[in-house]
Structure formats: C-alpha cells, structure tokens
Design a protein around this nucleic acid. Sequence first.
DNA 1: CGGCAAATGACAACCGGTTGCCATACTTTG
DNA 2: CAAAGTATGGCAACCGGTTGTCATTTGCCG
Lengths: 340, 340
Amino acid sequence: MATTQPAAVDRPATIHDIAALCGVAASTVSRALSTPDRVNVRTRQRIEAAAAQLHYIPNSQAKALSSGRTGAVGVLVPDITNPFYFDLIRGTQLQLKAAGYTQLLVDTEESDEVEASTVEQLRKSADGIIVAASRLSDDALLAAAAKMPLVTINRDVPGVPAVLIDTPSATGQALDHLISLGHTRIAYVAGPLTSQSSTRRWTTLSGAAEERGVDVRRLGPFAPKKQSGAAAADAAVHSGVTACIAFNDLIAIGMLQRLRDRGIRVPEDMSIVGCDDIFGADFCNPPLTTMASPIEQAGRVAVSMLLARLNPLAGGGARNRSVMPTHLTVRGSTGPAPLA
Amino acid sequence: MATTQPAAVDRPATIHDIAALCGVAASTVSRALSTPDRVNVRTRQRIEAAAAQLHYIPNSQAKALSSGRTGAVGVLVPDITNPFYFDLIRGTQLQLKAAGYTQLLVDTEESDEVEASTVEQLRKSADGIIVAASRLSDDALLAAAAKMPLVTINRDVPGVPAVLIDTPSATGQALDHLISLGHTRIAYVAGPLTSQSSTRRWTTLSGAAEERGVDVRRLGPFAPKKQSGAAAADAAVHSGVTACIAFNDLIAIGMLQRLRDRGIRVPEDMSIVGCDDIFGADFCNPPLTTMASPIEQAGRVAVSMLLARLNPLAGGGARNRSVMPTHLTVRGSTGPAPLA
DNA sequence: CGGCAAATGACAACCGGTTGCCATACTTTG
DNA sequence: CAAAGTATGGCAACCGGTTGTCATTTGCCG
C-alpha cells in the first residue's frame, strides 16, 4: 500500500498544502487570503488559484483558536417550539448569515440555570450572544454582558443593549379596543413571573385601567404554552370577566379551544386578545385578535446591534436600545360585551 | 497601572493555569481531566480541585483542533419557519444535549446550493450531519456521506443511513378514509419536485387508487408554504374533485383559508387531508384531518443513529434505517362526499 | 536486597491557522 | 550613485488543548 503517498489523499487542504504548491511560506498564504494588501498581486493570484484548485476551505476551529474570533454568535431562546421564536430565529439566522457569521441556537428550556451555563459555555465558542426573553436576574445579565458582547431581546436592563418589543403600548390599544366594545370587567392572563414582558404589560395595563375607570384583574401566572390555556380559560370564566388579554398567543389559542369545549362562545360570551401574532393566530377559530409586531425584524436588529459592537468600525453611533413598534390586529376573537 | 500583574485577570482559566497552580505539567492536567485512569488518584484530586477553584472550562476550539472531534453536530433543515421542523429540531436538540453534543442548526432555504456548501463547510466544524428533507441529488448525498457521518431524515438513498417517516402507508390510509366517505374524485396536491417524500407519496397513492378503482389526479407542484394553499385550493376546485390529500399541513391549512374565503364549505363541499400534524392542525377551522407521526422522536432517532456511528463502541448493531410509524388522525376537515 | 514491570508524569510535537518582527529586495529621492 | 524608504515574504511564537514517547519513580516479586 502506498502509505507514504506524498499527497492526493482526500483530507481537506490546509494553507500548508497551498504554500507547498506555490513554493511560499504558510504565513504568506494566510496573508494573501486575509490581508490581500499585504502581499504582492501576482503572488496572491497564484495562491488564490492554488486555493481554488485544492478546494481550500479554512478551518474555522484553527482560525478561532489563533485569532480569538470564532465567527459564531449564540442565540438563546427559552423554548424552540414556541412559534413566537420561529420568526425571531429566522431573522437572526438571515442577518447573521449575511454577515458571514454562524448561528449557534440553544434552547434554554425556560430555565435560568441552563441559560447561565450556556452563556458561560458560549463565552469561548462565540463572539457574542443574543438572549431572547432572558430568565436571568438583572445582575446576572449585567455580569454576562460585561464579559462578552450581549444583546437582549424583550428584556430591559440598564446598561445592557436591548431590542424591545413595545407590547406595553399595544396593551393599551388592546384595552381601549375592549373598552370601546363595551367591556368593563377584563382580565390580564399573566405569563411567567420571571418574564419581564409580562410584568411590564401588567403595570401598563393596571395603570391604564385605573385611568379609564374599568376593572382589570390579573390571573395566573401561567406557563406560556397552549395547554395552559385550559386553566386560564376556566379561571377567566370563574372570575366573571367578559374579556381577556392574554400574555401570548399560545395561551390565548389554548383558551379558545377550552372555551369552545365548554360551550362558551367567542366573542359573543367572551372576548380574547392575544399577543405576538404567531403562526396560527390568523387561522384559529375564531381568528385571534392580537398584538402584532415585526418579530423577524427584531431578530435582525438584534444581530445588527451585536455586530456593530463586534466590529466598531466607522462612526461610533451604535445604538444600544431599539424599540419595535406594535399594533393591534383585530380579528374575530373580540366583539361587543354581552348584555348580561 | 499594574500592567504586569502576574495573574488574577478575568481571562478564562486554561490547563496551564491549573498546571502552574498544582505544580505539574499541562499534559498531566489534560490527562487528569480526560483520561483519569492515566493519573495518580491524589494528583487527579488536586487538579480537579484547582480546576473547580479557577472555574476552568475547556476551550472547545482548542479541543477540536487537537483532537479532531468538535463535539458538534450539524442539523440542516430546508425552512426553519416550517412548523414541521420545530418538533424535529427539538428532538435533535434534546438528544444531542443529552449526549453532550452541540447542535449547529442551519436553514438551507430550500436550496440545494446552500445545502451543498453548508455540508462542505460543516465538514470541518462538525463531527456529523443530520439532513432533513434534503434537496440534494442521490449522488451528492452519497458523496457527502462518504466524507463524513451523515444521517438523512425523510430521504431514502441506498447506502446512506436514514430515518424515514412512513407517510406513503399513511397516504393509503387517507385514501381509504376518503373512499369510505364516498369520495371517488380525489386530488393529490403535490409538494416540490425535488422532494422525495412527495414523489413517493404520489407513487403509493396512484397505485392504490388504481387498485381501488378511484380517480386520483395530481395537482401542483406547490411550494410547501401556507400561501401556496390559495392556488392549490383554486386548482382543486377547478379540477372538480371532492377531496384533496395535501403534501403537508401548511398547504392544507392555506387551502382551508382560501376555500373559506371563496365560500366553499369544508368538509361539506370539499374534504381536505393534510400531512405531518403540525402545530396548528388541531385548532384551525375546521380542525385538520392529517397524517400524524412522532416527529420529535424521528429527530431523536436520527441523533442516536449518528452518534452510534461516531462512537462505534459495543456491538456493531448500528441500524442504518429506521421507519417511523404514521397514522391518520381524523378531525373535522373530512366528511361524506357531496351528493352532486 | 536486587531486578523487573507497572504506574506516573514531563517533554515536545502537533492540530491549522494568525501575527509580530525581521531580512531582503526593490523603488524613490537627493 | 548612495542613502533612505517601502513593499514583500519568511521565521517563529502563539492560541489551548491532545497524545506519543520516554525517563523516573514506585511497588512487587523472588
């Protein structure tokens, strides 16, 4: 067997192979490929030709090890199977790919511990992190942001760059919508206690309710999953309200199902407002009135902010806070309050 | 300024730091951590204590570079925003994490070129690849599988390990279901031409239709997206069939919406069967009759098959083909054929 | 107590690039 | 034409681990 065959094995080519082929040093190859100006045009062309001929693909591990930059960005979401994150993930993926970065997607399973250990892990294997709906404490997030570039989505901590989706203001729109339909007894179906979004929405809502003189009570907390909707629906019915504003569309859709099972008509007997306008909100039965926002774009903006931090080239005008607009999309799940 | 401060910087600890702290060589630290038997118990304990004290976290890049194993597995899906892949991704993610691997998720945008270049890219940065619904040619897949461990999902190429979802047999069940409801003019709403699943389903379906003496025609191809449903619905209505078996639930749901808009009742005027039982299939209007399968489990099985190949420890009983069962879930979108 | 094998740990090369520093060669200028 | 400056490419250290090789220590045996 030709054990000492000099070349031609199927092993991926390295810069050393190129260097040997061109009769130059490996460092020259490295420069030709990453700092073209640092090398004579003719030499560079020879090297580029050789690289193409050998199907050279740089080894990202080696690159990362020596340069310190990994070319990867971690994206942490609490629950991959929550449709809300689909569009977000797609937004980050598209924008990252466009910038030549790789996305490391991690499902933190709604757990602050998993999230914390993932952040620590990623410190070595990613250049930056995007954390959606973090379950970490403010302090932990601040500490993490001090160690490496980090952008949050839907989590406002002073000193940490963030993309915020302005659901509180949309919550106000939702309340006004319900009031204009004659509802006076309204419930807010809360999400996880550790969710800042949920807290902020409730604050806005209770304040606005007081101003407008309507009764808004809080139910929950409920896990942000469709199956939580059953308990939420029962609680809403029991509390005697005629309309609900749910933490998110998953819960809202779960409520629709439960209400239907119990023979309670939507919107005749009970109006439901969701949040996020996820996949499915437009074709459930009845279609869900919900607070919509450009989620994919939120992902893109988060990536832009992170990359601006990673490559602080031109003008230092890197924003560190971006608020995405939100609006109420009215569909069939809200209607006039029952006369009762 | 204490520029030459000997230690205590916030830089992550390396095995050299541990070695210095314990007064041993770096190689000993490496062995203590990865080959515990190779080192004296007492030495090992000292090293472990030091590692814990310094919060040592191994640098995965360096590890990958020197050992050749990256500890990562690439997962390629054609479209992240297709709910079908949510459960699949969750299955792979869970199983990979359990085995200590990292998941590199890539959206190949339904493009064979993106898919091919990603596979090439991943050759260096992942230990193996899982490709869902590949758009590559058989030859390309075979070549890729020869270069690195690879498992396909929903793509059957001889010589390439695969997890298959047995939708063809479910398609037969769907056909029988429709026949038993009195339908005799049925359409198959096809997916992309490059989708093997679609092709295989159509083959099964047309064969079964002939046996049973019913008329099944093929419509399409259609992109596997909800918005394709409109065109599909129009085509179905125009073709005069009374029932449709759609390539997937996205198209089916899109058809439901379009039919509703056009005032065509489901299932009174037209029955619709979907495929995959994705998120939303149970709460659309009407709820969709569809072919369901354990998708998350398919992801887990794919990971298991891949890992068995990566770590060929005990008995070489690594299967290279696994077929997931599928069954028809009947909901409200199918009903008796109209009398017409 | 000598001799031999097993256990242990140090040394150094290596994975595949990057980058600071230096020597050479070429160009420009006085 | 010499001095000075610039373009170019090589050398070697380094990133943080892994692993083969080998010297030394330890322990067991006769």
